[in-house]
Computed example of a mutant assay.
Amino acid sequence: MEAAHRRVARDLADQIAAGLWAPGDQLPSRASLARHYGVHEQTVRLAMALLRSRGLIEGEQRNRLYVAHPPVMRTLIAPDRDWPHQTEQIAGGTWKAGEQLAARLDVPLGTTLHHEALECLDPGGRSALIACTWWRGKRRPHASYAAEIEVMQLDEPQAHALGLTVDTLAYRVMRTRLDAAGQPTETADLILPMDRWTIRL
């Protein structure tokens, strides 16, 4: 059975998608919505938190909320460029190289790697992409890079970090930095939601 706050959030999201409220419109008060749906105000608060995490509404939690403007579409043209805005580390530590990472970094299977996952924020403080990086030993400068692109579905941690639903489609850019001799120095997965990005290489 669907939780009450998820039912309220789904109905409000459907109404926003149908154009009942336009970007910038103020939503009814929580008390009004609670009466309309026949639920407790705390249920409405949970529904609003869910809608905020998905980027559908904006505003301070204790004040009135507004329908969010659609996220800005960005174009990725340089996968090797460092993110120019604020980042927040969401994971870090060591990682054992599985088959794919071992091949990408040209290291033996099971090699201990350093790992870092960053949530990259746009100038407005919204999640724009996730960058997961792995490297062996000390980080070294690189001379070039190679990149491959595929389409994937977000898993639960990725979706949570980006404020989206599980199984949302995203681009996965697998970028490997190389030294002057062509040897890998580090590899990264750049996770870019398809509703926020186009790619032009």
Rank of each mutant, 00 (worst) to 15 (best):
P193I: 05
L46V: 00
R104C: 02
D189A: 12
H5S: 15
G38N: 11
R196S: 07
I199D: 09
L76G: 00
L105R: 09
C120S: 11
K138R: 15
K138M: 14
E119Q: 14
P108W: 03
V72K: 05
T198Q: 14
G93C: 02
Y37I: 03
G137L: 10
H40D: 15
Q183A: 10
I77R: 11
E88W: 00
K138L: 13
M152L: 12
A17G: 10
A91P: 00
L201N: 10
H115G: 04
Q86H: 01
G92F: 00
R104I: 02
L162Y: 06
P84M: 01
R172W: 04
G137H: 10
T165R: 07
S53A: 10
P71V: 00
A188M: 09
P28K: 12
A143K: 08
R81T: 06
E116C: 13
G98A: 04
A17P: 07
M48Y: 12
A17F: 10
L12D: 12
L164G: 02
R177F: 12
A18V: 07
A34K: 10
A117M: 11
G182Y: 06
R10W: 05
S32T: 13
D195A: 05
H85E: 07
L65W: 03
S53Q: 09
A161R: 05
A147D: 13
Q61A: 09
E60H: 06
L192P: 01
H115K: 13
G93Y: 00
I149G: 00
S127K: 06
E116K: 13
L190A: 03
P141A: 12
E116M: 13
V44A: 08
A128C: 11
M194V: 07
Q86T: 02
N63M: 07
Q158A: 08
A146P: 02
A159F: 05
Y145F: 15
D122I: 12
S144K: 03
A103E: 09
E116A: 11
A34E: 07
E186W: 04
T168H: 08
V72N: 01
D195Q: 08
A161F: 05
Y37F: 15
W21Y: 14
H69Y: 13
R126Q: 15
E186F: 04
R139F: 08
A4Q: 13
A161E: 09
I57L: 04
A131Q: 15
E186G: 02
L76R: 02
G182F: 04
V72P: 01
A22H: 13
G110C: 10
L56F: 01
A18D: 15
T185F: 04
A188L: 05
H160Y: 06
Q86W: 00
D195I: 00
S144D: 13
Y37Q: 04
L190H: 09
E119M: 14
P71W: 09
Q42L: 11
R104F: 04
A34H: 10
L169P: 05
K138V: 15
A180D: 03
P157N: 09
K138E: 15
A47Y: 06
D189Y: 09
T111D: 03
V173F: 00
D179N: 14
A97N: 04
V151L: 11
I16V: 15
G92T: 01
N63C: 07
A68Y: 09
L27Y: 09
R6Y: 14
A117D: 14
L101T: 06
I191Q: 04
E99P: 00
Q15F: 07
E58D: 08
R196T: 03
N63H: 10
R6G: 10
G163E: 07
R45S: 13
C120F: 06
A147Q: 12
